[in-house]
Design a protein around this nucleic acid. Sequence first.
DNA 1: TGCGACTATATGCCAGCTACATATAGATGT
DNA 2: ACATCTATATGTAGCTGGCATATAGTCGCA
Lengths: 117, 117
Amino acid sequence: MRRFIQPRLLLLLAKKASHGYELMEALRAIPGSENLSDPGMMYRTLRQLEKAEVLRSAWDTAGRGPARRVYELTKIGREQLEAWAAEIRKTGTHLEEFLTEYESIAEHRSAKQRKRG
Amino acid sequence: MRRFIQPRLLLLLAKKASHGYELMEALRAIPGSENLSDPGMMYRTLRQLEKAEVLRSAWDTAGRGPARRVYELTKIGREQLEAWAAEIRKTGTHLEEFLTEYESIAEHRSAKQRKRG
DNA sequence: TGCGACTATATGCCAGCTACATATAGATGT
DNA sequence: ACATCTATATGTAGCTGGCATATAGTCGCA
């Protein structure tokens, strides 16, 4: 699934507004999404989503450490997330169909092998 | 899922040796794989898989129409397909986890909306 | 026999994406 | 003062995907 970082970010932000660094660490903690936690990808993707009005951001200078750019979902963002969910459901179905097909021929093959052996 | 054309081709070829044009039409007929049926992609991917010794090919001049380059799986190819299946199973799991999470927050949101309304 | 449609393989190109490296800088602890 | 951590951002090179284009054999048919 291409651009899986996008739905992952939107889902995280749907739960709670957050900034790049925190999102990066959150992704790092999700099995199967570790590879999405590259800072380069992160920040560029966030800016791109903001440009598309899927997210909006504001600087947060309170708290400790350097200033953070805090992102939150817009209405478009919530709709986008729903669209992603629909697409991911479809993709999941296609993957299952693939596996069913694969297992049917794989079993066929091992049946023949049992016969031969 | 990146490069989904590869597992799809390998699965088709695991069932039956075939050539580019036929594989293209086969993909076109599989729901969710229509977009993989571009001839440019097809032929390049097939050559690439042959170079990686996942497939082997031979010209077939019998039958009607122009000569066809017929591909079949190698042993490496069958192993590769099995590896793809394993990866796809994993990806499927991650997608399900995503959807479960999404549905939990989506439900939460609509519960709040019902309360408000 | 000439022409269009179909079958078949192949290359060119470019925009966008990904991975990896690097730059910058404020805050914190010792 | 210096290292480490937090935080954001850019540079770049290679790969991928989508779309267009080239080439050519075969078939049906008018």
